[in-house]
Amino acid sequence: MKNLFIALFLVAFSITATAQEKTTVTTVALEQTKGAFTQKELTLKEGTYVFQVSNNNAAPEVGFVLVKAGDDASNPANHIKEAYVTEVVKLGETESTSQVTLAKGTYTYFCPLNHTPQYTLQVE
Rank of each mutant, 00 (worst) to 15 (best):
S74N: 13
G92N: 06
N78L: 06
I80T: 06
N114G: 02
V67N: 03
Q118M: 14
F110E: 08
V85L: 07
E93P: 09
T106F: 07
A77T: 10
K104D: 13
V89A: 06
T97E: 10
T101A: 12
E93Y: 01
V88S: 10
V65E: 04
K68A: 14
Y109A: 05
S98T: 11
P76K: 02
N114V: 01
A69V: 03
V88F: 15
H115P: 04
G105I: 00
Q118G: 15
H79T: 06
A83Q: 09
E82N: 13
T106I: 05
I80Q: 07
Y84W: 05
V88W: 13
T108I: 14
N75P: 11
E87A: 13
A77E: 13
T86M: 12
L113P: 02
T106Y: 09
V88G: 12
Y119F: 13
G105A: 07
T106Q: 13
T86R: 10
C111S: 10
V100S: 12
G105T: 06
L102K: 01
E95M: 10
T120H: 05
T94C: 10
H115W: 00
V88T: 07
Y109S: 03
I80R: 04
T97G: 08
D72T: 00
N75I: 04
H115N: 14
Y119D: 12
G70V: 04
Y109R: 04
N114Y: 05
A83P: 07
S96G: 11
E93T: 03
V85E: 08
T94N: 10
T94P: 07
L113S: 14
L66S: 03
L91E: 15
H115A: 13
G105P: 00
G70F: 03
A83G: 05
V67W: 06
P76E: 07
G70H: 06
L66T: 02
F110D: 09
N114R: 08
V89M: 09
K81A: 14
N75A: 10
L66H: 03
Y119I: 05
D72F: 08
A73H: 07
E95V: 08
Y107L: 09
Y119M: 11
D72G: 02
K90Q: 12
L66C: 08
D72K: 01
V88N: 14
P117W: 00
L91N: 15
V65G: 01
N78Q: 03
Y107F: 09
Y84K: 09
F110S: 11
L66N: 04
T86A: 09
Y84V: 11
V88Q: 12
Q99K: 15
P112D: 09
A83R: 02
S98K: 12
K81C: 05
K81W: 10
